[in-house]
């Protein structure tokens, strides 16, 4: 069995990706009040984007972020126009429920499409440097995963800056807080919704790319990643991207501890149990400010 400290290192490394995965979901949920349960499937597609670019064009997966992120932005815009933009007209409670159903249908369709395009096999992008390992104080740190963690942090930080500094970033935050007040200050909230959804999708694409390098992807990973992202959102609350990132790290570490204590197969269960308990303990306080 892997010793605890090694587990913790690996947990921290994947925790960064949990944080990134959650950041996109949190942004969309916080701003549109739309729960996109197909978020994990968007991550999956991002991973296949990177995989394709690598397999067909030999593009380095980290470099492929420069393609995947803009493509995901556009895809997010299209999804908003065709699907989720219809839901935001409804009052909030119906909105969350309908978005859940739509996201669910979308998830099924995307997963089935991925199976047709890439088969159900597990894949990962194996670069020349995939096996490189740093050894720090006797602990093995896979270089690719370390780089992914750093990139995940950079992306969450970047999103934080965008929301804090950019004119429309502020408009997005204002819309998240009070969309009627945003309208009254002259913000086109539909546009803020569109931008937030596109940004959230772009983050999902980026997360998927990083997953495909350090870990592996298959058409069926969507649900698992949606759940991870949901767990982090529930743990970290809405509103702060850096808080969400830290929440991801915490989940990674918690999984590592539980894998050591209860055994590897129970790695997932602990996070889910915590998720359920926190959710029930704060059934309303969680998502409202």
């Amino acid at each position: 069995m892997t010793p605890l400290f090694q587990q913790l290192v690996l947990g921290l490394l994947i925790g960064g990706l949990y944080g990134l995965a959650a950041a996109g979901l949190s942004l969309v949920f916080g701003v549109l009040k739309v729960l996109n349960v197909a978020h994990g499937q968007l991550i999956m597609l991002g991973g296949y984007g990177a995989f394709w670019l690598f397999a067909l064009r030999g593009l380095d997966p980290f470099a492929s972020l420069a393609v995947v992120i803009p493509a995901a932005l556009v895809a997010g815009g299209v999804l908003y126009w065709t699907l989720f933009g219809w839901v935001v007209r409804a009052p909030e409670e119906t909105r969350v429920k309908n978005s859940l159903l739509i996201g669910f249908g979308l998830a099924l369709a995307l997963e089935a499409a991925a199976v047709r395009l890439w088969t159900a096999d597990e894949r990962s992008v194996t670069t020349g440097y995939a096996g490189a390992v740093l050894t720090v104080a006797g602990l093995a740190v896979p270089v690719v995963r370390l780089a992914s963690l750093a990139l995940a942090l950079a992306l969450c930080g970047g999103l934080h800056l965008v929301l804090a500094r950019w004119r429309w970033g502020r408009a997005i935050r204002a819309t998240a807080e009070d969309w009627e007040a945003a309208l009254m200050t002259g913000i086109d909230v539909r546009r803020a919704y569109l931008l937030a959804f596109a940004l959230g999708t772009a983050l999902a694409g980026a997360a998927g790319t990083l997953v495909s390098v350090g870990y592996s992807i298959s058409p069926s990973i969507g649900l698992e990643w949606t759940l991870k992202a949901l767990i982090v959102v529930v743990l970290a609350g809405l509103g702060s991207m850096l808080g969400t990132f830290v929440g991801g790290l915490v989940l990674g570490l918690a999984e590592a501890v539980s894998a050591t204590v209860f055994g590897g197969p129970y790695r997932e269960v602990v996070g889910l149990v915590v998720f359920f308990v926190v959710l029930v303990a704060r059934p309303r306080g969680l998502f409202v400010r």
Binding site: R167, R170, A171, R173, D178, E180, A181, M184, T185, R289
Partner: peptide, 17 residues
Amino acid sequence: RLFGAMTVEENLELGAF
């Protein structure tokens, strides 16, 4: 109907959006 989580200056700047 202020944006309570934002700073005073951010609220004011949003007025000039």
